[in-house]
Simulated assay, not measured.
Amino acid sequence: MKKMNDKKKPVFILTIETSGLTSGVSIGQDGELLAERALNLKNIHSRKMALMLKQLMEDVKLDYRDLAAIALSAGPGSFTGLRIGYSLAKGLAHPLCLPLIEVSTLDVWAYQQGKTDLPVMALIDAHRNEIFCGLYRWKQNTLHREGDYRLVPLKDLPALLREPTLIVGADTVQLKEKIMKFSAEAARFPFPFLTQPENWALLHLAFQKYQAGELRAVSEAEPRYMRAFKGVM
């Protein structure tokens, strides 16, 4: 009798990051990073992403048909960057009937900072003295978001930061002085500052969503633009 092979099929996920300055792509197997490419330069998403993807797939010797899903940083973020990332992901996923996995850019920023005993606020500058933010807390080895994503004026930070809180995100450095003006007692800043969203963090969160069945059809996926909402997301 032929022996059954119970080895699980590997889950390959492609990630695409275009929510801000960084252009990044990566491939992971079962949530672990295999290869990545990233450029931290302005205005190159539309010119470099296709080439980066081609090189990445050649590096890992995989075909797009080997993928289980395509994950992307869903914002909030740059209108142009998110539009390019979503167009690319949908263009790849649609003919192959692949699901998409949308991961909040704020979740990526909070997760990549690593486990801490402090609550975490991930933020992105929304301009007009406002920020997009999410509040998080590590419980055992899992990051939990507390409440909804928010669009709030900087002057309202004291109502959110009721205890010492680690502040992270793409715009933390440039907003540090304003944050300290309103929340000097509670605000804590990491050192060194991380300056861009990391592919491995996007991949880890995407794999968690894949395992939980949090998948989106191409027709359902929509980015979270900077000014797509007012108040609470």
Rank of each mutant, 00 (worst) to 15 (best):
R150L: 15
G28F: 01
V152H: 10
A186I: 04
F132R: 12
G231S: 09
L82N: 08
L161I: 01
L194W: 04
P164I: 12
A38V: 14
K3S: 11
K181W: 06
W200D: 06
E58M: 10
V168A: 00
T15Q: 05
L92V: 11
A93P: 01
S46R: 07
L56E: 09
F132L: 11
V152I: 15
Q211C: 10
A184L: 12
T18D: 03
T18R: 00
M1K: 09
H45N: 02
R150V: 03
L14N: 07
L215I: 06
V173K: 13
L67G: 02
R224E: 13
Y64I: 14
K178P: 03
D6A: 12
M4Q: 12
A38S: 15
A184Q: 15
M233L: 15
K230V: 14
V25A: 01
L143N: 03
Q140K: 15
D63K: 14
L123Q: 02
N199Q: 12
M121F: 10
N43E: 14
H204S: 14
I44Q: 08
S26G: 15
A206Q: 11
E163K: 14
W109F: 13
K181I: 08
Y86P: 00
M4H: 09
E220H: 07
L100R: 08
R216F: 07
L21T: 08
K9Q: 14
G147W: 02
D59R: 11
K181H: 14
G75F: 11
D107N: 13
R162A: 10
L194A: 09
R137T: 08
G85T: 03
S46V: 05
R227M: 12
E185I: 04
K230E: 15
D66S: 11
Q140T: 10
Y149T: 00
P164Y: 11
I44G: 01
L98M: 08
E36A: 12
L56T: 08
L33D: 05
A68H: 08
P197L: 02
G31S: 04
E58C: 05
D117T: 09
I70H: 01
P223S: 11
N199A: 13
D107V: 01
G147F: 05
K176R: 15
L41V: 14
N199L: 09
T172F: 00
L21C: 04
M52R: 07
D30C: 04
L154H: 02
I84Y: 02
A50E: 09
L143F: 06
K90D: 03
A126Q: 09
S19K: 03
H204V: 14
M226K: 06
L39V: 12
V173Q: 14
L123D: 02
L82D: 04
Y210M: 08
L14M: 09
P164D: 05
L194D: 07
L96P: 05
L96K: 10
V103M: 02
L41R: 09
P119A: 00
R83V: 11
Y225P: 07
P197F: 01
W109Y: 13
S87W: 02
R162H: 06
K115Q: 14
M57E: 07
A93F: 01
